[in-house]
């Protein structure tokens, strides 16, 4: 059943990712991004990373995506303006992307991972365990990240203000 779930959600996220690239309308790209984010969140559920899945949904889909659509609305004169790259640029980019996908996949498939790669070895950490790790082993990065968020908040507010 887990295998079936993987294939379904992987297909959803891949197809939406292709949709993002293929669509010339930026709002449609953003909607496709919702599909990818949701698919990846479901993959996290399949991987027993429940906390991460809901964080993905609440931060990315509920926050970042709304922010992006907001940005699109504020920065486009007409809804249907699309800027397209030239044909040569697109061809080059596609070539590079295909090379990259093939290269990374070959590398991944031929690599010798230290552990058996086909059987999950450990049950994933529960929410309580992740929380405990955040507040013990990873306390310094956690605090630094909170300071960073504060700085980002102030910085974004400063950047986006209107000139008087």
């Amino acid at each position: 059943m887990d295998d079936l779930a993987f294939y379904i959600f992987a297909a959803v996220s891949l197809l939406s990712a292709i949709g993002i690239v293929a669509s010339s309308n930026i709002v449609r790209s953003a909607v496709c991004l919702l599909g990818t984010l949701g698919g990846v969140a479901c993959l996290y559920f399949v991987l027993d990373a429940n906390l991460l899945a809901v964080i993905q949904l609440i931060v990315y889909a509920g926050g970042t995506l709304v922010l992006m659509v907001f940005g699109i609305m504020l920065t486009s004169k007409s809804p249907w303006v699309g800027f397209r790259a030239t044909r040569g640029q697109v061809a080059g980019a596609v070539l590079v992307a295909i090379l990259m996908a093939v290269g990374i996949s070959t590398l991944v498939l031929t690599a010798e991972w230290s552990q058996s790669a086909n059987a999950p070895l450990k049950t994933s950490p529960s929410v309580a365990e992740v929380g405990e790790m955040l507040l013990t082993d990873y306390l310094v990065p956690f605090e630094v990240a909170s300071v960073l968020l504060l700085v980002v908040m102030i910085g974004a507010a400063y950047l986006a203000r209107t000139e008087k």
Binding site: A10, S13, L14, A17, I18, I20, V21, I26, S29, A30, T36, V40, L43, M68, G71, I72, T75, G82, F83, R84, A85, Q89, V90, G92, A93, V94, V96, A97, I98, M100, A101, I104, S105, V108
Partner: peptide, 20 residues
């Protein structure tokens, strides 16, 4: 899967001219 999504992301960065 991750490699494919990564490449698609790079492709998206390269082909879009809209900053968002």
């Amino acid at each position: 899967l991750s490699a494919l999504i990564f490449s698609l992301g790079v492709l998206c960065m390269a082909t879009k001219r809209n900053a968002i």
